[in-house]
């Protein structure tokens, strides 16, 4: 979905002269045209992520709307203090564009597994966090962010998914009963939809904006379900499971709440994300097996 997001961003650079695109020497065959077409609003800062963030903050001082792009695993943790101090404390509308989520970079090892990124950012007040589950949502996201005018992180999964065709921050795809709802985001929504195809009684709640959540509305959706399973490619305590736990407590929900998620760092090779999804029971077969338990 990064192709679609960058395409929209490229178009907006033409019409919105406040948009500034920066990258940390990433995005081969994708980012070059930004510099060629808009050399004064483009910078490849080099392999220097801390500088990427603080320069973006400095550009906000001049009224720009910077989009800072690199792969998610380098974008968040190394620059945590820069994100906190230079962006969040100043409420600067920098958009962090991070490519890859979960086990997208499977065989590259644990430094490239993105399983604790957005949960870290959730601890900082004022940052909107998005993880698009479909091309439809991704294509409108740049405009949504430009309109919101707040600090934002977009966690961009690999893959281009046609479903669900919703532009909303969350959408419920109802099953034939109120027995089970799977709550998920990003590319794992596809796994949940596959599980639903195999068992049409299952509902799927798709969350495209991970933080902040529309807590009251989501509580109303979740309330009738007997069993709520949060399915994610991120550690659950700081991830969506933690946020849904909050909703359960705040709104007195009484269903059975559980997590399907990675349980720790992985040091074994998986030639694709399928290996790790299978390992943690995050493929459709694994989810259905859990539900039988």
């Amino acid at each position: 979905m990064r192709t679609q997001i960058l395409e929209v961003l490229f178009q907006r650079m033409r019409t919105n002269t406040d948009v500034f695109f920066l990258n940390a020497d990433m995005g081969i065959n994708l980012v070059e045209r930004f510099g060629e077409s808009y050399p004064h609003r483009y910078a490849n800062v080099g392999i220097a992520e801390q500088n990427l963030i603080s320069i973006s903050a400095g550009l906000c001082n001049l009224g720009f709307r910077p989009f800072a792009y690199t792969i998610s695993n380098f974008l968040i943790h190394r620059c945590f203090e820069q994100i906190r101090n230079d962006i969040a404390l100043h409420d600067y509308p920098v958009t962090l564009l991070g490519t890859s989520t979960g086990f997208d970079n499977a065989p590259l090892g644990p430094t490239h597994h993105i399983v604790d990124d957005w949960g870290s950012l959730k601890s900082i007040p004022g940052i909107d966090i998005y993880c698009p589950s479909s091309v439809t949502y991704a294509e409108q996201l740049i405009d949504q962010i430009l309109k919101e005018g707040r600090p934002a992180y977009v966690r961009i999964p690999k893959g281009e998914y046609a479903e669900p065709t919703s532009t909303l921050n969350y959408v419920i795809i109802e099953g034939e009963s109120k027995g089970v709802v799977l709550v998920s985001y990003g590319s794992l929504v596809q796994t949940c939809l596959e599980a639903r195809r195999q068992d049409p009684s299952i509902s799927v709640l798709v969350v495209n904006r991970l933080h902040p959540l529309e807590s009251k509305e989501l509580a109303e959706i979740l309330a009738p379900y007997k069993r709520v399973m949060v399915v994610e490619d991120h550690f659950p305590i700081t991830g969506l499971y933690g946020s849904v736990c909050e909703i359960f407590v705040q709104h007195g929900l009484r269903g059975r709440l559980e997590s399907a998620a990675p349980t720790g760092y992985c040091f074994d090779v998986g030639t694709s994300s399928d290996y790790f999804l299978n390992k943690f029971g995050l493929d459709a077969t694994g989810l259905l097996r859990r539900l039988r338990e």
Binding site: H40, Q50, S54, S56, G58, N61, L89
Partner: peptide, 25 residues
């Protein structure tokens, strides 16, 4: 005051962003 600092090694990088931004403006 342009920018809150306190952790070291931030203000100079933000200054670089300002310099780049002034050029772009």
């Amino acid at each position: 005051v342009e920018h809150s600092t306190g952790a070291l090694g931030h203000g100079i990088n933000v200054a670089v962003g300002c310099a780049l931004g002034l050029r772009a403006r």
